[in-house]
Design a protein around this nucleic acid. Structure first.
Lengths: 401, 401
DNA sequence: CATATTTAATTCGTGAGTCAAATTTATTGA
DNA sequence: TCAATAAATTTGACTCACGAATTAAATATG
């Protein structure tokens, strides 16, 4: 949008206003035309025209529920037609794939999960498992492939949304690889791929806290550390499409080895694998559980019960995270940072002192401090974000109507 | 632009296209209508209409020079009318103030400099010196205050452009302070204030290498370390207007003390004062020159002649800079980084190994590497950028015509 | 030298968008 | 039953950008 060479004629104007109306209705759940006019700063006439088109297309319904705040002609509430479109959102994680089916409103109406053969897979297994899981979710939703008009997939690692190119992933072997092309073999509708942290951010932007902010950051802490940057209501992916790689920001010169092969990455101190690695050193000779999550739970338990060594592991991780967050503040100056991801379960341990650390390491102004919002969302978050990605492309593609 | 509540009617469309035409002419120096149409992806009819308005307003002139590339009707080259408007740009540095007068094209037609009473000044001295230097420059240009339609000022430190608020500056005592309000007392035209690194960036964007890129970073190394971020052709100032504070990004946990009071800031390793501090330790008991630049020149000379201690100072600075730059790559993924500022004179020493460092510390992809462009611009850079800031506000303000 | 060719710029007609103002619609309060 | 009120729609004026046709101004050509 707004690209160089974007033709700014009146049709584009209308398309833009239509998209804004649609987004506003989704944001509010339901809204009367007056609401839209005042929120979007459009004239009532324009809103009427735009809405008329949307009603004719069947994308929006007029609800009869007459909410009467006083006298005067009652406002007709507008809602998105949930069944107008359906999209699928999928997320590749270490060891599993989740697929969700979303309706036009953005509600998850069905989902399915598959366990993978190991922590990393190849392209072949990705495609096979993805399709079968997709089919299962479709069955649950009572839909067929042709009912799906958009497919979004989240992949951890260095993924370019525009091209669908995956340059490196901790989960997917065989990179560099064009994931979009791969999926298109089996999926008939438009396919989009993005970094998983971007999808979590999209979910926040469309359905979560982000609806009420135009500029914010989302930091995800799970198997890795991810970042999503929202600037003026839009997800920012970097100048060439591969930015916001927070997990591989360096927090230490010649620091700990990261799974990406570099040294001193934030992930190498904060992510699952880093904590597990430390656990190995903390309990030498001791048998540790196979499952990563269990190791971390154990570590957390011991830290909480006063054991100094595991406590220091979390302390160091928190300090590095704080350093990284402080740097984000310096560079992006957001009003809000949303922290999310599974690791937020051990939130207390990790975040202990982080806020103080941030405060100590960011410039002092008279302005209100940045707000840190911790958002422990369900696993659905990721897939829902992938669905949002699909919905996004959907809307864009539909504009030339 | 594109703010929530931005009314997208046809008038805004025209205003936007007008601004684009103006910018394109300035970018190219001169251009025929066909050029504009193809570059901006507008129809010839639209360009004719827009240009007609600009000609009528006197902002643009049609040059008679008939450059004939072949047969056919010769193209009429369009140029900005240099004398259509005049603006002033000023820059506050440690120990001096520079003021430049720019014509509508963006050429510096006069400038003046004043030496300050010391490395830091108060608001009173700022205003007094600024006005007297401004008057001198005006005299040189043969203009009066009323001829100036915009005034831009660059201040190092934490400065908010939107409000004109200076939260902290290494040069200006008495912060927090609203610099815009201060200047308005004496300057009759619209006043804008911004962080100095942003102005250098604006200068690159309007007049320098940046004209050929839509996404890039500018890193300034001088008394401090500054950053400017250009996203999609627009200067990005952070979510709340105080972002891109590269100099105070932390490159070391509990690191060297910075003049801002925090620890581990990049500036505390790379900036002038950091090098001088190190020089003091490198030559204990030895008498060092008073002047910062001289100390650094001495340091550089000894390093070049093989003295290991001063060499290590530059080496460490370069390494920290490399770390910081690598982090910028991870977060912004620019295609180009422009390095500028006075310290680029010792470019060789500082940059030795930095490129390697960056490469080692950024993710490996099959894409072309980021391009590092070193741009040793004259001192006029800053003031010219301040002028660009003034020109920018000018154009925006003129749109509602 | 007259004419065709080529390219730049302008003009004109059309479709579409937005807006403000007037109008219609639906409801409440008196 | 009838004003008052507020939401939604319709109407009319205006502007914009576009494409096609037209005009303008040069060069090439025979």
């Amino acid at each position: 949008m707004n690209a160089p060479g974007f033709r700014r004629d009146t049709a584009a104007l209308r398309a833009d206003n239509t998209a804004r109306v649609l987004a506003e209705i989704r944001r509010r759940g339901e809204a009367a035309r007056v609401d839209l006019a005042s929120s979007l700063d459009l004239s009532a006439a324009t809103v009427t025209a735009v809405v008329a088109d949307l009603l004719a297309e069947g994308l929006v319904h007029e609800s009869d529920t007459v909410t009467t705040p006083g006298r005067g002609r009652p406002r007709r509430q507008l809602k998105l037609n949930p069944t107008a479109r359906h999209v699928a959102g999928a997320k590749l994680s270490a060891g599993s794939i989740t697929v969700a089916i979303l309706n036009f409103v953005g509600d998850v109406i069905a989902d399915a999960e598959a366990v993978l053969s190991g922590p990393t897979i190849n392209a072949d297994e990705l495609l096979r498992t993805l399709v079968s899981t997709f089919e299962r979710a479709l069955g649950d939703a009572g839909l067929s492939r042709d009912d799906i008009t958009g497919f979004g997939l989240g992949v951890p690692g260095f993924v370019e949304r525009d091209t669908g190119f995956c340059h490196w992933s901790p989960v997917l072997r065989g990179a560099p690889l064009n994931v979009c092309d791969l999926l298109r073999r089996e999926i008939p509708c438009p396919v989009s791929v993005d970094n998983d942290a971007n999808l979590a951010t999209l979910a926040e932007l469309w359905f979560g806290h982000g609806r009420y902010h135009r500029d914010f950051l989302v930091v995800t802490i799970e198997h890795g550390v991810g970042l999503g940057v929202v600037i003026d209501g839009q997800l920012y992916r970097g100048g060439r499409g591969l930015g916001a790689e927070f997990g591989h920001v360096k927090v230490q010169v010649d620091g700990a080895l990261c799974r990406c092969g570099q040294r001193g990455c934030l992930e190498a101190y904060v992510a699952d694998f880093a904590l597990v690695r430390e656990a190995g050193a903390a309990f030498p000779g001791q048998e540790l559980p196979r499952d990563t999550a269990e190791v971390i739970a154990l570590l957390a338990e011991r830290a909480r019960s006063g054991d100094e060594v595991p406590a220091s592991i979390f302390r160091r991780a928190g300090r590095m995270l704080g350093l990284g967050l402080a740097n984000l503040l310096n560079l992006f100056d957001p009003g809000v940072i949303i922290l999310t991801g599974a690791r937020m379960r051990h939130h207390g341990l990790l975040m202990e002192g982080v806020e103080q650390w941030i405060e100590d390491n960011s410039l002092e102004t008279e302005r209100p401090h940045v707000r840190l919002e911790t958002h422990r969302w369900g696993d659905g978050l990721w897939a829902r974000g992938a669905g949002a990605l699909a919905l996004e492309t959907l809307v864009v593609h539909e504009q030339p109507d």
